[in-house]
């Protein structure tokens, strides 16, 4: 058993871009091994929330905890508390991120994409990094593409490499920011397949997604966000079959 209650949690998270308030008081606690899908209309702040978690966006106010330890506390754009640089780096590395637009490094081959951060950040030897990279690339089913540049891959294959690249850092939490939204419909399945596999292996996952089927099948908990607020959350069964919030009802009507 883990010696912490929540692997990741946020308290009273606020984020504004100038006068625009994107996140308003987001409270969410994630247990180890939990798969949470965040759904909601566009502009709800779902992506911003994920990006705030791993510091791609600076939050305006709120607290972020990793393994129950305070990672960051800010109030009104001022940092009140922040973990020590070393601890901070280690905590950030607990999170792997997969982007909507893959963001693979185009000048590196598939293998190099999956190796580079292991060598630079985890300070592994090339041999060790390559060994793990080849293992993980095999898990996402792209062993025959090791020396290929990303431009020669389909969108689905690129996203699988991106997942492999994040996994190679051996994170405990995976953040997925609409991983299938920029894919052709026939390529969505292969990426979701890899994600389901990960969920089965017990990876803690936070997915912003529009794939309701995936959310229903895989998620332990579904969170509905709109206008920067969490309006409803619950098991997929509760949320999809008996939504109570009016906005959630309307949203689900329009997508299902």
């Amino acid at each position: 058993m883990s010696d912490y209650q929540h692997i990741l949690s946020t308290e009273h998270l606020y984020k504004s871009f100038g006068p625009l308030e994107v996140l308003k008081d987001i409270n969410l606690a994630v247990k180890k091994g939990e798969v949470i899908c965040i759904i909601g209309p566009s502009g709800a702040g779902k992506s911003t929330y994920l990006r705030s978690l791993n510091q791609l966006e600076k939050i305006t106010s709120g607290k972020i905890f990793i393994k129950d330890e305070l990672f960051l506390h800010r109030e009104h754009n001022r940092t009140i508390h922040r973990a020590e640089p070393e601890a901070q780096k280690a905590m950030l590395l607990e999170m792997g991120m997969v982007f909507q637009r893959f963001n693979l490094f185009p000048h590196k081959t598939v293998l190099e994409n999956v190796m580079i951060a292991q060598v630079l950040v985890r300070k592994k030897t090339k041999e060790a990094a390559q060994k793990l990279a080849e293992e993980i690339i095999e898990r996402v089913g792209l062993s025959d593409k090791l020396d290929v540049y990303p431009s020669k891959l389909s969108g689905g294959q690129q996203q699988r490499v991106a997942i492999a690249r994040a996994l190679a850092m051996e994170p405990e939490i995976m953040l997925f920011d609409e991983p299938t939204s920029s894919l052709d419909p026939e390529l969505v399945g292969e990426v979701l397949g890899v994600m389901k596999g990960l969920a089965k292996q017990g990876m803690t996952m936070l997915c912003v997604t529009h794939e309701m089927g995936f959310a229903r099948e895989v998620a332990d908990r579904v969170v509905f966000m709109a206008d920067g607020l969490i309006l409803e959350e619950g098991t997929p069964k509760d949320l999809f079959d008996h939504p109570t919030n009016e906005k959630a009802i309307n949203f689900l009507k329009s997508v299902l």
């Binding site: 991120m97 630079l120 690249r165």
Partner: peptide, 18 residues
């Protein structure tokens, strides 16, 4: 260069210099 490249590098824990 696409900002996504910076974000991917940061998300992987790379320093600015790296």
């Amino acid at each position: 260069i696409d900002k996504g490249q910076n974000e991917a590098a940061k998300a992987l824990g790379m320093s600015y210099g790296q």
